[in-house]
């Protein structure tokens, strides 16, 4: 009897788990096993390092992008912000400003860009896609122009040591990501500001009628996202020990795809989750790693990313349609 009760409770718990995550986890595990079976090299720390370093910036930015997309918007300026902030940070370092202060200033600048994105979006009253696209172009152009296409490097010895500092064998960027992911996981479920983002994305007008400062919420979202892109810029400079206009090319596409794979809807705001994004990020990182391991040309990455984006959107739209149909039938 007790056993049956326990089983019921377990089933009840299982029912509450989104099928989407189950599928993703199963995919992630089976992909790892296949890769592990194919290559002994797969489950080594070195490969883990390669895999992580290839996708850690995307992973960090995907957290902020998730919130932007949940709010019903999009921000593709990140691929302009990342190299811009990397260049700003590098220049500050070269002027002898202490690392931590330089990082703070650089991230502050990225916040200003986020503020500008939101301001333009509000004032011009158009889809954030257009505004952030223009911002991306402007920044990318600016990056090329100010660096004249050359790579900035020549930082102090001390600075280079940061990259070699690996507590428990894991690099600083990964630690930062783990910390951020943890914060986002909790905040997206617990924090008032984060939860308001879901309301604004779900029904902006209703949120306004409920007395919410929706514009304030959106400002927070865009600044937060730009700040994370800025952080990724700072970390890129640290990791590569240089800064270049070519950083972050196409990064917005990979970030958006990771978020979409995680089940956050690009068509309807208000639904999505950080945990889904984390799964989506791990999944994409594994796939890219599988490409590298199997010796498939990295050129396939872009093709694959685009196809994954369409597929993820199609699946989420299909699931939504089926769900809505069943709800309608049930209530009719």
């Amino acid at each position: 009897m007790i056993r049956k009760e326990q089983r019921e409770r377990l089933l009840d718990h299982l029912r509450k788990v989104d099928l989407h995550y189950v599928v993703l986890v199963v995919l992630i595990i089976s992909l790892s096993l296949i890769m592990g079976g194919k290559s002994r090299y797969f489950f080594t720390l070195t490969n883990f390092d390669v895999m992580v370093n290839n996708f850690i910036m995307e992973a960090i930015m995907a957290l902020g992008m998730t919130m932007v997309i949940i709010s019903g918007g999009i921000d593709i300026s990140v691929s302009g912000v990342l190299p811009f902030i990397a260049i700003v940070f590098a220049n500050l370092l070269l002027r002898g400003i202490p690392v931590l202060l330089a990082a703070l200033i650089a991230i502050f600048v990225s916040c200003l860009i986020g503020l500008a994105n939101n301001w333009l979006r509000r004032v011009l009253n158009i889809h954030p896609m257009i505004v952030t696209m223009a911002m991306q172009l402007t920044l990318r152009g600016l990056n090329l122009a100010v660096t004249d296409g050359s790579v900035i490097s020549g930082f102090s010895q001390e600075f280079q040591k940061i990259n070699q500092f690996k507590p428990l064998g894991i690099s600083i960027s990964v630690w930062i990501y783990i910390l951020l992911a943890f914060i986002f996981l909790i905040y997206s479920k617990q924090n008032k500001m984060f939860l308001n983002i879901f309301f604004v994305g779900g029904n902006k007008e209703a949120a306004t009628l409920s007395g919410m400062n929706t514009e304030g919420v959106l400002r927070f979202v865009y600044v937060l996202n730009a700040a994370l892109a800025g952080l990724a810029g700072v970390l890129s400079t640290t990791v590569y020990n240089s800064a270049s206009y070519s950083f972050g090319q196409g990064v917005e596409m990979r970030v958006i795809t990771a978020v979409a794979i995680g089940g956050t809807s690009l068509t309807h705001g208000g639904s999505g989750s950080i945990i889904g994004t984390i799964f989506g990020t791990v999944f994409l990182a594994l796939i890219y790693n599988a490409f590298v391991m199997s010796g498939i040309s990295t050129y396939y990455q872009d093709v694959f990313t685009g196809l994954m984006l369409i597929l993820a959107v199609l699946l989420s739209e299909g699931a939504r349609m089926i769900k809505e149909k069943s709800v309608k039938q049930a209530s009719a």
Partner: peptide, 22 residues
């Protein structure tokens, strides 16, 4: 109380009731 509902459908009853003054 508006004629059209202004609820966030994907959230809980409690979150909706106390939206903005949780």
């Amino acid at each position: 109380v508006h004629q059209e509902l202004s609820l966030a459908e994907n959230m809980t009853v409690a979150q909706n009731v106390f939206v903005n003054h949780e």
